[in-house]
Design a binder for these strands. Structure first.
Lengths: 211, 211
DNA sequence: GTTGATCCTGACCATATGGTCAGGAATTCC
DNA sequence: GGAATTCCTGACCATATGGTCAGGATCAAC
């Protein structure tokens, strides 16, 4: 109680924007863009609807900000790949990072999935530029590993798709997984099993012994 | 032109329902339940909106019928597993079948994904019963293969998740894949590469030599 | 060609939703 | 303490959407 009072009005804007963005991410994830309502987001954030429009002029603007936030998370994880020494470390760590995102940031993953399923009205440009470049870079890296005989000659592109698909599945289809787990979310041990299985099957599948 | 005229009014109901269901699946897939409008579905189907309500009383009823159709497709593919002789054939054929569905029925896959992401308002009961039973059965089968030493001792549940995730990814994230393929859908050869890679990596990953 | 059944649809309605705005409350700064 | 700035919000509006309905068209059967 000694550190909330002092900031009053100082970063009140930042705080409220964060509050709204968090609520919005949750609602957009659970209802989709079309199903989400400003009123519901306001309720989740615990603010009057008019207040949302004070910070974010339109629903679209709010949605865009939510999606932008998700890019950042995605990019952060993507960089694990960069500073790696080889397939075992690079791909293994990337899988771990993406599994961790699915666990800690499931709503973001769902918003991304929803966005792409709806033909990426907001991130299309980003897909064509940043993601495309990133993917090509990673493909080149994987091809060099293949050329050096450090892994099987699989198609790098489809390997990436498999990693994305499998890791994001734990977020996007979390409800289905929960249902098949007697209605309970995966606990720590179960997440560990999931992560280990994904890493092991993929790494062995491409001829890499886990390092 | 000799066989459409005679049936007039005969199975006109069946024909129109099919037409509407097809349009609805497409629209629900692209816009989500909340974003889809009866008007747009009507436009896609080429019928007046009021006509939709003649065949389907509410948007919800129409959506349910669409989702039910998708179950059927899913179940048909699931049975490939049943009549198999071992992991190489059973899992390999299952992967092929699911890849084929992603290719031929992408809208259905998206509707399914959307439904699950929104906490399965329609199919929850089905997830808890049919899917749960099916999954347990397949897990038991895989465990028997493991016990017989015909594949590595992986966690069968997470293996299934990986297969679902990877194969459905080609439908649900089809737009992203298309964008990363210079804006063009995968052609026949590319689909073959995708299928082969998925099958090979997973089968090798679980210690099965493709049979 | 009349009857009964099914199919079709333009016009209409009630509601929900995104968005606006005028006026007021806090807070900071001098 | 008062001026300037930022923040807040209840009440309101225009529009879009799901859904209704009365009346008409079409068709098989006889």
């Amino acid at each position: 109680m000694a550190d909330t009072a002092p900031n009053r009005k100082k970063n009140i804007r930042a705080e409220n924007e964060a509050l709204i963005l968090q609520a919005a991410e949750k609602v957009f994830a659970e209802a989709g863009y079309g199903g989400a309502t400003m009123q519901l987001i306001a309720d989740v954030a615990g603010l009057p609807k008019a207040n949302l429009h004070y910070y974010f002029p339109t629903k679209d603007a709010l949605y865009r900000r939510v999606v932008e936030t998700i890019f950042q998370v995605w990019l952060d994880a993507a960089n694990v790949f960069e500073n790696s020494d080889g397939p075992a470390e690079g791909i293994g760590a990337y899988i771990d990072a993406k599994m961790e995102i699915s666990r800690r940031h499931p709503a973001g993953s769902k918003v991304w999935a929803s966005e792409v399923m709806h033909r990426a009205p907001v991130i299309q440009e980003w897909l064509e530029s940043t993601l495309n470049v990133w993917t090509d870079g990673r493909i080149a890296l994987i091809e060099s590993w293949i050329a050096e005989g450090r892994m099987d000659p699989v198609d790098p592109r489809h390997l990436l798709y498999m990693i994305w698909a499998t890791t994001q599945h734990y977020a996007d289809f979390g409800h289905q997984i929960e249902t098949l787990n007697n209605g309970a979310p995966l606990d720590d041990a179960q997440w560990e099993v999931a992560k280990t299985n994904v890493r092991r099957i993929i790494l062995k599948g491409i001829g890499v012994s886990p390092g």
